[in-house]
Simulated scan of single mutants.
Amino acid sequence: MAQEVRGVVAPGKNEPVRVETIVVPDPGPGEAVVRVQACGVCHTDLHYKQGGINDDFPFLLGHEAAGVVESVGEGVTEVAPGDFVVLNWRAVCGQCRACRRGRPQYCFATHNAQQRMTLTDGTELTAALGIGAFAEKTLVAAGQCTKVDPAASPAVAGLLGCGVMAGIGAALNTGGVTRGDSVAVIGCGGVGDAAIAGSRLAGAARIIAVDIDGRKLETALRMGATHTVDSRATDPVEAIRELTGGFGADVVIDAVGRPETYEQAFYARDLAGTVVLVGVPTPEMRIDLPLLDVFGRGGALKSSWYGDCLPSRDFPMLIDLHLQGRLDLGSFVSETIGLDDVEAAFDRMHAGDVLRSVVVL
């Protein structure tokens, strides 16, 4: 039987969000209903609200979530009612050419629930990243649920669902950071700080944080950066080279996603070094680099989509590391709030006042 719950809806482009009554249908084949316990406020949700993703309004926002499976549909075997799960937006298909080649982290046919949640008048909602977790309960594909150790707090576990995983994965999975490496991270918001934490976890010897905001640079030091560069006052390329013996970093991660920062990342890496783009550009952005420089510097230019993660592999591992005290996921949580506070949380995010606000239900 369908259930009615409270959820945060973006009704139209740049309109304030509203808490509405949401109708959650019973799970169909391959689907699950999850009772949401916590959900982080991610910049992607703000992009949805601003119309920066698409115009399929109204949106049910929220996607960095953890909770408990309440019910499952026909054919679901990977999770069961009562399981504590982190939600992800990449339920792999197991059948596409990437999955058949043993690379499910690159699945080309990821999927979401087939049914849509609605408003009480029948208006269909578009769930942010196929999740829609600024709600007391949500309907997802069962493959979007990753079972993890319930000893972890939902407020920190849910952050793996997007930004923290994107940053850690950019360092560990895409960038291949390893012991003794030098790493530079351009842009020290939530994703950039997660890349710093991931680089520290991998044993990088030198981790250089670059930003224009002194507050963010202070936070980056707490996350594991060994050096900081204020790029308002200093050429970041020259500063990174100076901090790496004149050579440049082994791995440079662009967590901003602008042509200017990508060019800085390109020239701030060592010969045969790696550039990782994890910041999300907008459609009109272009990059112009001399092809001879691309050829002559060697190395690799990579894009990291969701940190090249495989949730079933990476989420439980990172939760275990957190519970062992080796990965402080709690340091990403600036504040906990309620569903009614999401609009104000967007304002604080835009002002750079928080690393992550987390809705706790």
Rank of each mutant, 00 (worst) to 15 (best):
T244H: 07
G175C: 09
T120E: 00
A184W: 06
V360K: 06
K216P: 09
D211R: 06
D293Q: 09
V36H: 13
I337K: 01
D293L: 12
V33A: 07
L277Y: 10
D230V: 00
S312H: 11
S334W: 07
A142Y: 15
G82M: 04
P16N: 11
G214I: 14
G102L: 06
R101V: 05
E335W: 12
G198I: 10
V256K: 03
I22W: 10
I240A: 08
A204E: 08
P104N: 04
H111F: 09
G7Q: 02
T336F: 04
R101L: 15
K49Y: 05
T138W: 02
G190H: 02
V19C: 00
V76I: 13
R241Q: 09
L243H: 02
L160C: 11
T244C: 04
G82Y: 14
G190I: 11
G161W: 13
R258Q: 02
R215N: 08
V256R: 08
S71N: 06
R206K: 13
G198R: 03
V333Y: 13
A300M: 05
L289E: 08
F134R: 02
V76T: 15
P281W: 08
T178A: 07
M349R: 04
D288P: 03
T219C: 10
G176S: 07
R6M: 12
V72S: 01
H63F: 11
G248I: 10
P150D: 12
L361K: 00
G198C: 02
A233I: 12
C162S: 10
R258F: 05
T110L: 00
T274M: 10
G187C: 06
R90K: 07
G130R: 05
D270Y: 14
G132R: 15
A141H: 08
T234V: 12
R356C: 02
G30P: 13
L277C: 14
E260N: 13
G75N: 15
V358H: 11
K49I: 06
E15N: 15
A142R: 10
D235E: 04
G40T: 15
V33Q: 00
D328P: 02
L339T: 07
T77R: 03
L129A: 00
A127G: 10
S357I: 12
K216V: 13
L292D: 14
A135E: 13
A166L: 10
A239Y: 10
T219E: 11
A98E: 15
R313F: 06
C96Y: 08
R241A: 09
R97F: 03
G73M: 14
L310H: 06
P25W: 01
C188Y: 13
G161Y: 12
E284Q: 11
F134G: 05
R101S: 15
M117I: 04
A197Q: 03
D347F: 08
P29D: 00
N54F: 00
A141I: 14
A133I: 10
T77F: 05
D26R: 05
P27K: 09
T120L: 01
E124F: 11
R297V: 11
